[in-house]
Design a binder for these strands. Sequence first.
DNA 1: GTTCTTACA
DNA 2: TGTAAGAA
Length: 128
Amino acid sequence: MKEKELRRSLAVLPIGTVMKLTNLTARQIRYYEAQALVFPERNDGNRRMYSLNDVDRLLEIKDYLADGINIAGIKAIYDQQHQAAQQKAAAQRQPLTDEDVRRILQDEFIRQGGLGHPTPGIQQQRPL
DNA sequence: GTTCTTACA
DNA sequence: TGTAAGAA
């Protein structure tokens, strides 16, 4: 199920094909690139080459624009999506550190009144 | 023939 | 955003 995404990421479409697929003008497609909304590759002749993912993104951009969202707004959407994905990726590389687990269990212990005398501000770091 | 960049009666 | 010009 990973071979598929690789194909969709292959930049093999010239701008002319993308124009027909999206009904956008070359001017618009290049403009969206200038606005960092899409990142086509370049071939040896400096020609832009787009992947199917790029086409999907362009269609998505077209829809957002049709809904009245401006370039800045679309950029904001992609920015937060990128950040979210990046954080999840980081979370899987480095699950929960021993210290995280200790802190979580300690907070829960204190919250349940495990200690006879709640002392805000004084959190002891006793090993579990 | 297609695409690129730059510029604007 | 459209369109023209000159180069690749």
